[in-house]
Every structure is written in structure tokens, then in C-alpha cells.
Design a protein around this nucleic acid. Structure first.
Lengths: 155, 155
DNA sequence: TTCATTTATATTGCACACAATTTAATTGCT
DNA sequence: AGCAATTAAATTGTGTGCAATATAAATGAA
């Protein structure tokens, strides 16, 4: 009972830009999982570590801006990472509304263990590394556009 | 307490290909949500409808192959869509292990309502439509590569 | 035929994401 | 100073995603 499928039907799955991005994100999560689980991290937790290795301490809000996530996602995630001993969460004495997230020495030390994660995972990508960089830059540009349209998490 | 950040540090957030894909996927979900909620759909439910509008009935496994999802994700999602009256789930009499998912007349009728969803959402993308198509094709190629590495959901 | 193996889906447990709401602290207007 | 408006996080409730496991049906080798 196959529906007739016109080649220019705007609802064709293979004409969507959203679907390959969705699928790629899921596949990447699946690919990273076994590698990151050895470090005791999930994929979004890994992103938080990348952000903090670049700059720490940071407020929950600043982390959310960097990763395009809101406190509804970050708060429980950061609590789990705090439990794991990777970071600390402290109210900012300057402004008690803010929470400063900082790395523990254990969290800083984990960076050494993570050094080989990117190459491990891009090793099998096959294809010109320059093409991958072009793709990355294109998706980054798309993210910049999209983020302008959604004015941050939860509007 | 900012860490020193070398320009060629492989762990820099802006050097990752994974992160913009992750961020784009989240942002797209957020952008689609208000539009799709008017149709009574979530984003992954919309993808299931796109797949079924192209071909129905389909088994759970065939849907999973098309969308890169496994039964752990699809089963509860399809049950909710069945409750909503969009589709039916029936054991295949030919092979009782399989479940055939088919559209109801309500599910088929929803396609008319969804016709304008893609243009509504790409309207604000600003930029050459050809560039968006190039990006789509590049990400599709990446998905094809990634799916070869992960041998399907749950390996 | 019998029964171990394989296959298709469902279930369980855990960790996100996000809208909406709540709580608490700060700002700003008067 | 007093207080309404704003801001930053946390909480609540729903819906994914996925690994691991369970269940049940079909397959296949002896």
C-alpha cells in the first residue's frame, strides 16, 4: 500500500535538512558512547568538560550559552558530574543567583585521558580531513543562524 | 582561572565536528516544536509520519532502518501515536515476530496539514537554498559513513 | 522431529532535552 | 527605603534515545 511519491514532494524524508542532522547527532552519540564510558562520561558531559577545559570557572548560564542548553538540562547533569567528583558547584558570593561551576583536580586531570578521543573517533571517517572541516564550518554557520531564530533555550 | 588554550588543541570545542551537529539537532528540535505541536506531533513522531507517508505499512524494523532508531525508542513512540489515532500496530500473520505499522485515515489526512511545515521552517534560514541543499547532501554522506561504523542501533 | 540458534519486538533502567513553573536574589524606578 | 520587574537556577512533567535484557516466533542443523 505504498503511497505515490512525487520527486518534488516537500515532505520526502530525503529532502529534509533536519533529518540528516538529527540522524548524525544520534549516530555520533552512539559512536562516542563506548569510548567516553571508559572516561566515565556521557556525550553531553564530555561537552561540558570541553567547555570547562577551555575556561573555568563558569556560571551555569555561561555553560548553557556555550552549549545551547538551558538549566533544565544542565542542572541535573552538573549534579551528576559533581557526584562523580569532576566539578564543584558553588553559589557566587557576588551574586547569590549565580552558580559557579569549577573543575576539581580530578576533572582537570581527565583532560590528559581525553586527548586521544577526537582522533580515535575521526579515524574511521574516511575522506579528506579538509572536507570534514568544511562540513564542520557549514554546520557551525547553520547553528549560528538557528540560534538567532530561537533566542536561546526556552526562548 | 582560565586555562591556557592552544589554537591547535584537539579538545577545543570549536574544532569538534560532533558539537555543531549536536547543537544543530537540538536547535532544530526546538524550532520545530511549536509548529509541530499544532499538528499534535513531536519531532521524532513527525519523522515517523514522513516515513509512513512515503510508504505504509512498514514493520517496526523497517522504520528503524529508515530513521536510524531501534525498537527501544520506536515501540513507546509508536504506542503514543497509536493512542493518538495516527497509526495502527498489528502483528504480521505471516511472521508473528513482526509488527506492521500502518496509517489510519486520520494519519493520512494529516499529510495535508503538514504540507507547509518545511517552507515555514526554512523560510528564516536566509542564504542560498542551493547552499542548504549542499549542506544537506554533505550531512547525508556523513550519516551514511557513520551508519556503516555503528552497524545499526544497539549494534 | 527436536532443540539450539537466530530474529523481531518489547521491556527495563538511566540520562538527557525542553516547556512551563517556581524560588530566590538583584535591579531599578520612584 | 520600598516594591515591582527582572534575572539565574532549580524543579516538574513529558518524551525521547539507547544499552542490556527478556520474550516469543521462526529457522536450521543433526
Amino acid at each position: 500500500m505504498t503511497e505515490d511519491q512525487h520527486p518534488d514532494d516537500p515532505l520526502r524524508l530525503d529532502r529534509q535538512i533536519c533529518f540528516p542532522l538529527y540522524a548524525a547527532s544520534n549516530l555520533i552519540n552512539r559512536l562516542y558512547r563506548p569510548v567516553l564510558s571508559k572516561l566515565g562520561l556521557t556525550y553531553p558531559q564530555y561537552l561540558v568538560m570541553l567547555a570547562l577545559w577551555e575556561q573555568a570557572p563558569r556560571t551555569v548560564g555561561a555553560l548553557g550559552e556555550a552549549l545551547y542548553l538551558d538549566s533544565g538540562t544542565l542542572t541535573p547533569l552538573l549534579k551528576r558530574m559533581e557526584q562523580a567528583g569532576l566539578l564543584t558547584r558553588k553559589r557566587d558570593p557576588e551574586d547569590e543567583r549565580r552558580v559557579q561551576v569549577d573543575l576539581t583536580s580530578e576533572g582537570r586531570a581527565l583532560k590528559a585521558e581525553a586527548q586521544r578521543v577526537p582522533e580515535t573517533l575521526t579515524a574511521g571517517f574516511e575522506g579528506d580531513p579538509a572536507d570534514v572541516e568544511d562540513l564542520r564550518d557549514s554546520v557551525q554557520a547553520l547553528v549560528a543562524t538557528l540560534s538567532r531564530h530561537t533566542r536561546g533555550p526556552a526562548d
